[in-house]
Nucleic acid binder design. Structure first.
Lengths: 337, 337
DNA sequence: ATGAAAGCGCTAACAC
DNA sequence: GTGTTAGCGCTTTCAT
């Protein structure tokens, strides 16, 4: 009936031992406190028997640590982020942490709200794919000693750790590949949240186009939630420009683009060669297969966690070193090029 | 420098007011406590000024409520669950809750671990796509007064709310559709965690096969993490049986199946007609398009949240009513059939 | 080798 | 109208 959780006091009372002792034993400090084997046994046994679980909130209130990690991505339903979330989940649980996630939808306000939430929740650290406009807030968290690891996007030299991917290089090789296959009019359709001149994927694209002496067709698109709108935008781009190849800056643009191409009855790669950033089941299985610039998802997750965990374990590090890791992408050539 | 968060005491000291008063004001109980307008203003202003944020842990410790909701799915990186997670996130935040998620991988032990974690974390409620074998634990949570809403899978009449989908009916109509198109040897490739006789999708399939006087080809597969293994299993099934149509019980089996079909050079729908449970970008965009039994993702998320929120708002309900909502699936016919 | 006691930040019954 | 006070369950210093 009164099945409510047993507290440390319950244990203490039942065993005629003080809370202190119980606490030490349960926290593995029995040795250094020289508590007798016998007592340790007894306490452990009774704790197990009663199904005792420490109250995380009391614990957090006392210690200031929460064992919660915040994960902030653009959209948790995007397979790229979902896969990362899955991997991070796996690795984080092994270290006794839990994850609270949220999707920013590239909205600064949402992003900041969530940062506040993380702060309110007192997460021990967080892994964030930031939107732009959050620079200030991220820096503040960092300065307050919270461990933050950025990925997917970051802001120059602000002292925050980041796990990035070689976006410029990846894009450069994609264009190179297309050019080598004889493409002349290569378009780039990519999200530009901010200034297109600052987007690495766009920069890499332009550089490759220039190096290959080709004409530049860049179509920066603002971020919008709706898939339908992208279909619309892309089909307009296709009808107004006679391209023989196209590169998409993200998986969802690639997907939308592929749908448009198919709808318009364009043949890949004869009428239109195609490459998308990010691999996806769709790109692998589609006939013809779609060439992609794949991001090393596993490595991104691993590095992000490793970085965060090492800061968490050694808080002194947090304020000091800031490392920006850049992981290579890989061009997976399929029949679309 | 000492930028650590201001507490209620700080506020109280600064304004020469007691914590009590602050607490009441901040919790919107100023009216009923008949606190003067002026004071309310002053407190609110100073709170905003100092950037005061209540300490969630102290709050939780005191009230027993945490504003955290646990979300447990089979695999957060599966688009079906990821989409649900996204929608649930959206709806939940509007109500001031946060989400902690975890992926069971259909592993009972993991599932139970996470349930314990939810319990330790004192989540206010949870939305769970259970694995089998968790019946007992779910029932216990429920009996302890925790709000639990199941989806995707549930255990008969155990008094827990559940949001389900008409799996039998969806599968039935898929087979019916195939039969109407002249398919004779229709195979079903589906995960059977437990007894295949208890899996609704398999039941629906068999019923439809019987009603249409066809031969029964059911290939229950155990759940395994690895995609490669499914490829293997499926291609064996295809080489050992001469089917003219196949139905896949879940999106990842459908994806693997499609990959196998393409690899084997089978033509859809001439050599092999195909239907998969769950819609997916891949099925929509693939040429030919793949007919699917789509689940109403949005509705599932909405119902789950609605149910949970109403229980949370009115705890008295929790122990009483248990509702099993069954949502319809829809057959989206494409070129694969 | 063990325990008493203070206090983390907050809420709410009960005074005044 | 506003303040006092007693905890929520835990950790940890200091005493014994």
């Amino acid at each position: 009936m009164t099945d409510s959780k047993p507290s440390m006091s319950d244990l203490a009372k039942k065993l005629n031992v003080s809370k202190t002792t119980i606490s030490f034993i349960l926290n593995g400090k029995a040795k250094e406190r020289r508590i007798s084997e016998a007592l340790v046994e007894k306490v452990l046994a009774e704790a197990a028997n009663l199904g005792y679980r420490p109250n995380q909130f009391a614990q957090s209130l006392r210690t200031g640590r929460t064992n919660i990690i915040g994960l902030m991505v653009e959209d948790i339903s995007n397979p790229f982020y979902a896969s990362i979330a899955r991997l991070i989940e796996e690795k984080v649980y092994q270290n006794g942490y839990r994850i609270v996630y949220c999707s920013t939808e590239n909205d600064v306000t949402r992003g900041k709200d969530f940062l506040t939430m993380f702060s309110t929740l007192s997460v021990d650290g967080c892994i964030v794919a930031p939107t732009q406009g959050m620079e200030q807030e991220i820096r503040e968290m960092h300065e307050k000693g919270k461990s933050v690891v950025l990925f997917d996007r970051y802001f120059g030299n602000d002292g925050t750790d980041a796990v990035m991917v070689d976006n410029q290089g990846g894009m450069y090789r994609a264009v190179e590949h297309l050019a080598a296959r004889g493409a002349k009019d290569i378009g780039l359709i990519a999200i530009a949240l901010d200034d297109p001149e600052k987007e690495d994927r766009i920069i890499g694209f332009k550089k490759a186009i220039a190096d290959n002496g080709l004409a530049t067709y860049v179509f920066p698109l603002p971020f919008k939630g709706g898939y339908e709108e992208y279909l619309q935008d892309i089909s307009e781009i296709f009808s107004r420009n006679k391209l023989d190849a196209v590169v998409f800056g993200t998986n969802y643009l690639g997907i939308a683009g592929l749908e448009v191409i198919n709808q318009m009855g364009l043949r890949i790669p004869d009428d239109m060669a195609m490459i998308s950033f990010d691999d996806h089941d769709l790109f692998r299985i589609h006939r013809p297969g779609i060439t992609v610039v794949a991001q090393p998802i596993e490595a991104i997750a691993q590095k992000a966690i490793d970085t965060l965990m090492s800061k968490l374990r050694n808080p002194a590090l947090t304020k000091k070193t800031a490392e920006v890791i850049t992981l290579p992408t890989s061009l997976i050539v399929r029949a679309s090029t």
